[in-house]
Simulated scan of single mutants.
Amino acid sequence: MSYPPPPAGDPNNPYSQQPPQQPQGQPGYGYPQQAPQGVPPQQGYGYPQQAPGAPQQPYGQQAAYGQQQPAGSSVQANNGYINLVSGPVLLATMGQRFLARLLDGVIVGVIMTIAMVAGLGSVVGIAGNAAEDCGSYMDPGYDACMNEAAAQASSGVAVMFGILGIFALFMLLYEWLMIGIKGATFGKMALGLRVVKESTGGVPGVGAGFIRYIIPMVGAFICYIGMLLTYLSPFFDNSGKLQGWHDRAAGTVVIKK
Rank of each mutant, 00 (worst) to 15 (best):
N147G: 12
S122E: 07
G183C: 05
D139G: 15
R194G: 05
G141F: 12
Y65D: 01
M178E: 00
E132Y: 10
Q34Y: 02
Q49R: 15
G205K: 00
R101N: 10
V203L: 03
D104T: 10
L191C: 14
Y3K: 13
Y65W: 03
Q68S: 11
S16Y: 05
A131R: 09
M112I: 12
A158N: 12
A71N: 10
T93M: 02
I181G: 00
R97T: 07
L103G: 06
A130P: 03
A220Q: 09
S16E: 13
A149P: 06
A64Y: 05
A63D: 09
Q26M: 15
N13F: 02
G202A: 08
F221C: 10
G125T: 08
A71T: 14
W245Q: 09
A92P: 04
V108S: 13
V123D: 02
G38C: 00
Q96L: 09
P4S: 12
Y174L: 07
Q24V: 14
V253E: 01
G60H: 04
G38T: 00
M160R: 04
D237G: 07
A249I: 04
W245L: 15
S154I: 11
Q67M: 14
G60Y: 05
Q18L: 15
P70R: 06
M116D: 07
L120H: 11
A51Y: 10
A158E: 05
V124K: 01
Y231P: 04
P11L: 07
S16K: 06
F161C: 07
V253C: 06
G201C: 07
M160F: 11
Q152G: 15
T200K: 09
Q152S: 14
G192L: 09
Q33Y: 04
A35I: 06
G209V: 00
A63M: 10
P88C: 08
Q42T: 10
S154D: 15
P27V: 13
G201R: 04
N238H: 14
P14V: 05
K257R: 13
G119E: 00
M94T: 12
G80Y: 04
S86N: 11
A208W: 01
V157R: 12
E132M: 12
M227R: 06
R212A: 01
Y142G: 00
V123K: 08
M1V: 14
F167L: 13
S122R: 11
N12C: 07
L102H: 01
K257H: 00
N147W: 04
L91N: 03
Y231K: 09
A190I: 03
A71W: 07
L103Q: 06
N129Y: 07
S155Y: 05
I179M: 08
A8P: 15
G201Y: 01
V117N: 07
F161E: 09
P11G: 02
R194I: 02
A35N: 04
S239R: 02
S199G: 07
V218P: 00
Q21R: 09
P20M: 11
I181N: 06
